[in-house]
Amino acid sequence: MAHPADMKTDPMVPVLAQITRKHMEIPGVVTFEVEAPGWTGFGPGQFNMLSLFGVGEIAISISGSCHDTDRIVHTIRDVGAVSHALTMLEEGDTMGLRGPFGAPWPVAGAKGRDVIVAAGGLGLAPVRPILYHLLANRGDYGKVTLLYGARRPEEILFEQELGQWRSQLDLDIEVTVDHAAPDWHGHVGVVTTLFPSADFDPDNTTAFLCGPEIMMRFAANALTDAGVGTRDIFLSMERNMQCGIGLCGHCQLGPHFVCKDGPVFDWATMRPLMSVKEL
């Protein structure tokens, strides 16, 4: 993982990254594989600043495997001007890329413990590197559970991959949707309804949560109610990130620069801040 001190160039200046593969995940969500000069890898949970010249720049988490040091994988949802323009790019096109930035998920700290990964909506993308890591080092961890909530069955991200993972006996995957047509045979309900049947030892569990803030709040509360420690629950926060290096000030959340000190924080740190409205 690149450390700021190793960076020889100005962290505000992007490199040109070339798209080697484009894949439509679900309507409005595209995964790109890109190659960038000078890339030395990333830690799960880190993000890059992606840009299209003349349009703008946005923070996008890395959704690929940190064991894959050549390809950089980003899953982007078309929600704003910049993300829209990015999703319109094709294989062979280039985009501006700087990074990786931010504090990664502390996967090493979860060694020897049960792991719960709970994600909602597009929040599955930033936690996918955790799952790749856990699968690559399966023996180092206890029971591993992925609980995933999506809006509708048609909006389940990485569905094929989820199916492959589900066929593995050492990984428990539960998917729920907010509403569905009757041909859906899976769970219907919010992601927290999956917690009671999840199998984990609360005294020896690390949880990684990613999704809309309100979903993470309820999920973190459900986990603490089940006995998981507030320092063993990690969340990935989203704020307006413009520089990615803690200098522009936009992403402040209480004393923290989300881009530099986060985006991954523990629940003990976030709980008091997330209970304040409009902080």
Binding site: M12, S51, F53, G54, V55, G56, E57, Q242, C243, L247, C248, G249, H250, Q252
Partner: peptide, 25 residues
């Protein structure tokens, strides 16, 4: 010290630049 990162396109060429500008919370 806060700044906004702005994308600036030149009207008379295809040159674009990126600028930090003072921003306010």
């Amino acid at each position: 010290f806060c700044t906004t990162v702005d994308e600036v396109s030149a009207l008379d060429s295809d040159e674009v630049s990126r600028e930090n500008r003072w921003a306010s919370c």
